[in-house]
């Protein structure tokens, strides 16, 4: 149990996907302009991450290891993630059309989100069991959503700030991310 907690906090705060591991930066800078978008994007990514971790760790433990074909992991993982995203897209479209419209273009883009493939590769690298893989995916997803929400709150204000013209837009967003990242490293060294 203790082990599961430490995995959760390690991936949510200390090894935060966006600010420390640099995974999933495209949606971080693309979607974090509005709070509502940030929340739905974070939820969608977390959901896909958990499903993908579950599926890939089952494949890893019951197919790759017994047959000794671990080197196939990159090709198979990316295919599993791509098909999972398609299935999730279909299910959401049939059951909740409003949510589907709200997520819009972000859903198919999750396939090429490094955070999703990243969490499955970390699970394999650290030799996590199936339960540990799910916990690590939840931790990574929660950390991802948290940073996306914090950043979108700051960026809504940055739009109004009086910063130098050359800094407007992406450069100031990068520098804000640098300060945020420093604070996350600070928190993790306290723990």
């Amino acid at each position: 149990m203790n082990n599961l907690f430490s995995i959760f906090f390690a991936l949510a705060i200390a090894n935060n996907f966006i600010l420390v591991k640099f995974l999933g930066l495209c949606p971080f800078f693309g979607v974090s302009k509005k709070l509502s978008n940030a929340i739905s994007m974070g939820a969608a990514v977390t959901f896909v991450m958990v499903l993908a971790s579950f599926a890939t760790s089952i494949i890893y433990h019951y197919i790759f290891v017994p047959y000794g074909i671990e080197f196939m992991n990159i090709v198979i993982y990316i295919l599993v993630i791509a098909s999972l995203v398609q299935i999730v897209e279909l299910i959401i479209k049939r059951t909740n059309i409003r949510l589907y419209n709200a997520l819009g273009i972000y859903l198919p883009l999750i396939t090429t989100n490094c955070a999703v493939l990243g969490v499955t590769l970390i699970n394999t690298q650290e030799q996590y069991t199936i339960l540990e893989s799910i916990v690590s995916a939840v931790g990574g997803g929660v950390g991802f959503t948290l940073v996306l929400i914090i950043m979108s709150g700051i960026r809504e204000r940055l739009e109004l700030c009086d910063c130098p013209k050359a800094m407007k837009g992406l450069p100031i967003a990068f520098i804000t991310a640098a300060i945020l990242s420093l604070s996350f490293i600070g928190i993790s060294s306290l723990m």
Partner: peptide, 22 residues
Amino acid sequence: TIFILPSGAFLVIGFLLALFRW
């Protein structure tokens, strides 16, 4: 040390982009 830490990467690319624009 901040340049080696993850935040240094954000800092450097942010200032480089601003410099190129300026």
